[in-house]
Design a protein around this nucleic acid. Sequence first.
DNA 1: GTCTATACGTGGATAGAC
DNA 2: GTCTATCCACGTATAGAC
Lengths: 194, 194
Amino acid sequence: MARRTGSSAEVTGPRIRAAALRLFARHGYAAVSMRQIATEVGLQAGALYLYTPDKQTLLFELLRGHMEDLLAAYGTPDGPPEARLRQFVRFHIAYNLDHADEVFLSYMELRNLEPANFAVIESLRRRYEDQLSQILRDGAGLGAFQIADVRLATMAIIAMLNGVNTWYRQSGRLSREEVLALHETMAKSMIGAR
Amino acid sequence: MARRTGSSAEVTGPRIRAAALRLFARHGYAAVSMRQIATEVGLQAGALYLYTPDKQTLLFELLRGHMEDLLAAYGTPDGPPEARLRQFVRFHIAYNLDHADEVFLSYMELRNLEPANFAVIESLRRRYEDQLSQILRDGAGLGAFQIADVRLATMAIIAMLNGVNTWYRQSGRLSREEVLALHETMAKSMIGAR
DNA sequence: GTCTATACGTGGATAGAC
DNA sequence: GTCTATCCACGTATAGAC
């Protein structure tokens, strides 16, 4: 049975994070006040401090949560490199489009993290990038891909895929499936996949 | 002959813009105060308002100046599509690396522009992107490139090239020339250039 | 052209009542 | 668990002296 009192507490935390995420992504961390976040959730500013020690930690927890969700959602597919590359490209674009605010925030507000917090996020991001590097390395080892530099190819593919979020609109000229398919083709061509 | 009095005025404006650029790029527009900018230049905050009507205009002028410099620096090369693509790729990466603060700012702080100012910057950016689209269209028309969608390929190539600025360091593993050459190869492969 | 002083709003964060 | 009240620093911008 759910508790009667305090039941709102279990829902207030997530609502605060959701509001902070939306506002930070829209206006930038520095431009958003704790009062704005509180208003959005229907609280007074003081009440926020029951859920976060300060504004910086609120930002950090949003970014950390995003990176961990991303890693968990990706899993670690197996199969031949070509299939895993296809899966990575499609997963990455789809996940980015479905979590646009989180993705935008986790690139834009890195500079507003304290050094210790920054290191944590960067390490999680690196772990994700390494998933793609491993695919490329395996494919190159088998002769399926032609890659001069695996790390550089990793960064180039991820940068290309990230670009989608800056212009894709659901009502746009290209369907989501077309965008996925075309990027799959471009990613493969880039590294000389058969 | 330079004037005696007021000679400092001709140098103060640029110094203010340079300081604002550096601070905005490093900490974000919203996080930087007019007092910080003034201190950086060795002025009092009030003196800044002799050079800009307000903070928003200071940001806008920085972005507009950058986009116009970019367009002027690119010019409009001619020659066969392959050569023009090669030139675009190299120019874009080199210019971005040499103007990292301006480039970063012009992507990150778009959301802090008033709608009218935003429209001006976006229109300039589109004019630049169209330079690449034209190259791709010409190449596709001649059968030199295999491109399913010119606009999407344009965005994909620019996103890939922009990615360099997020990780390239002069002291890094790859030389600047290697980075240029490898991206030239990847850009060509992406669109099936011969 | 620059400075000092200042108006006035808003920032993050805390104390203590309920 | 939330609110009200409040502290104090700092924000943009302006007025007026020099």
